[in-house]
C-alpha cells in the first residue's frame, strides 16, 4: 500500500473523529457517550497509524514509534472506559437512573 492509499485511511479517521464527536455531544445517555468517546479515540489512533505508515523506511512497514504509542493509547482508553462504565453502573444502582444532567444543568445539586 502506498502513501496515497494510507491517506484514504487518514480521511476515514477524520470522519470517525467527527462522527464520534457528534455522538458525544448529542447523545444524552452516558453509556452512549462512552461509546462515542471510544469512537473518537479510535479515530485518533487511526491517524497515528496513518502517520506511522507514511513513515515506513528501511524495511519497516511503518514508523514504530507511533505504532507503539497507539498500543499505549488503546490500553489507556480501555482503562478510561472501564472507569466510566463503573461510574455509570454505580450511579444507576444508587439512583435508579443513569443520566448526566441534573434537572437544571447550570445549577449544581445541593445535598
Amino acid at each position: 500500500m502506498s502513501v496515497a492509499e494510507s491517506t484514504f485511511y487518514g480521511l476515514c479517521a477524520a470522519a470517525l473523529v467527527g462522527i464520534g464527536l457528534y455522538g458525544l455531544i448529542v447523545n444524552p445517555q452516558p453509556l452512549r457517550k462512552i461509546l462515542s468517546f471510544n469512537l473518537v479515540g479510535s479515530g485518533v489512533f487511526l491517524i497515528f497509524g496513518v502517520v506511522a505508515r507514511r513513515g515506513a523506511a528501511l524495511g519497516m512497514g511503518g514508523d514504530p514509534v507511533p505504532q507503539a504509542l497507539v498500543i499505549t493509547g488503546i490500553v489507556v482508553a480501555f482503562s478510561a472506559t472501564a472507569l466510566a462504565v463503573a461510574l455509570v453502573v454505580r450511579l444507576h444502582e444508587t439512583t435508579g437512573a443513569a443520566t448526566l444532567m441534573p434537572a437544571d444543568a447550570g445549577e449544581p445539586p445541593t445535598p
Partner: peptide
C-alpha cells in the same frame, strides 16, 4: 448520588 454524577461529568 450527586457526587457520583459530578464525578461522571468530570470524567467525561
Amino acid at each position: 448520588p450527586e457526587t457520583l454524577q459530578a464525578a461522571l461529568r468530570y470524567l467525561l
